[in-house]
Design a protein around this nucleic acid. Structure first.
Lengths: 115, 115
DNA sequence: TCTATCGTTCGATTATAATCGAATTATAGA
DNA sequence: TCTATAATTCGATTATAATCGAACGATAGA
């Protein structure tokens, strides 16, 4: 069984988090997690193959943006909203709000698959 | 005389802006501009050579984070706070606040020069 | 016109990362 | 034990970018 590294709340680094959130695919993942519910890796409906999804989820996890929980053959991914809010108050909300009014999601999905 | 490209307010792109802000040197530049005053490129006191400063200022300009104004042999750089606030309300403030309470500035400057 | 200053550009190096497909691992369930 | 499923890892490719030093360009001022 693999150990999945997650940085502690106090170790969250601003540039690292901003970098993790600066990729369109990863922004889409975070947007889909913003309801607060968990999703499995296969459940994101992303326009990239599964090994690429795995790479992006790992980047988000190692930066501290998401938490990954193993159950059986699946990984349940959730937003670390509380930790992010503690360290960077208002940041996640501002990014999600900006993302939702932008057309970035549409740009990404118009060449890929749907919700 | 060179024409300096600046994206319009409406063209600001979230992932591009986040990427521009995900570099420690560029975060330091933005932090120093956050008083609202202009600075020249040579005036940032960064721990990198001037060609690297030029590269970072260009990245910030082309992403829409800063405006660059030419006067004589100098470039006056300022934050596009109004444009960023219009498109991404709260984002800049959250990032600056997070940056100021972090130790990233210290990390960067401890190996370089001061203020 | 000469020179110093400010900044950009260029070329090179090095590092990082986004992406894919194939192979692999781990687990649940028949 | 066998098989299907979920996801990771690996290797390769391609692209991007951070950094430096050297050369260049533009301008102000002597």
């Amino acid at each position: 069984m693999k150990f999945l590294y997650h940085p502690d709340r106090a170790e969250l680094n601003l540039s690292t988090v901003l970098y993790a959130l600066s990729d369109p695919v990863r922004l889409l993942i975070v947007s889909k997690l913003s309801t607060g519910e968990e999703r499995t890796c296969g459940d994101f409906g992303l326009p990239v193959v599964k090994s690429t999804v795995s790479h992006h989820v790992r980047t988000l996890r190692e930066s501290g943006v998401v938490r990954v929980r193993v159950q059986g053959t699946q990984r349940f991914v959730s937003l670390r909203a509380d930790d992010l809010n503690d360290r960077f108050p208002g940041l996640l909300a501002a990014i999600l709000k900006a993302y939702n009014v932008s057309e970035e999601k549409q740009n990404l999905l118009s060449n890929g698959q749907q919700s």
